[in-house]
């Protein structure tokens, strides 16, 4: 049973620029994934305004009965979030690692246009590897 169900990347204006499902749980069609992305973008923005904590940077973790949603927002406004099995550990470091892969294999690709959907094979390959390694690390514990 894979720990990470799916990964989303949202650009700073709220557009979904990357979506990938891992395993068969929690799969969504294109429309639903777009809807989730824009919903999350807005909820994240609202949470910043509603938060009683000064300097809040938005929701980091949403816990539901059937999944956990972990979110990381870079200082440049790009959001990365994974939907994972409830209680999955170490998602912060996985998201951080995904951010590094994004800077290496997406932003450094001269043919990638900023803010546009990501279609970079090298990114896919390295991402799959990172998520698989994460799964093995989980099994080892």
């Amino acid at each position: 049973m894979p720990a990470v169900y799916s990964l989303y990347i949202i650009n700073k204006s709220g557009g979904l620029i990357y979506h990938k499902d891992y395993g068969s749980a929690g799969r969504m069609d294109t429309n639903d994934s777009l809807r989730l992305a824009s919903l999350w973008h807005s909820m994240h923005a609202i949470s910043q305004q509603l938060s009683p904590v000064a300097g809040c940077t938005g929701i980091e973790l949403l816990e539901a009965d059937t999944f956990d949603l972990h979110c990381f927002q870079s200082l440049t406004g790009t959001k990365f979030f994974v939907v994972a099995a409830p209680g999955t550990q170490n998602m912060e470091s996985l998201l951080k690692h995904i951010y590094e892969l994004y800077t290496d294999y997406v932003l450094k690709n001269p043919f990638y246009e900023m803010e546009m959907p990501i279609r970079c094979e090298l990114f896919d390959i390295n991402l799959t590897q990172a998520i698989q390694n994460d799964r093995f690390a989980l099994l080892g514990r």
């Binding site: 870079s74 200082l75 790009t78 994004y102 800077t103 932003l107 450094k108």
Partner: peptide, 16 residues
């Protein structure tokens, strides 16, 4: 620069 900033932030762990 507009691309490099993300690599800088990702690798340096610098916050605001």
């Amino acid at each position: 620069g507009i691309r490099l900033i993300d690599e800088f932030l990702a690798k340096s762990n610098i916050s605001t």
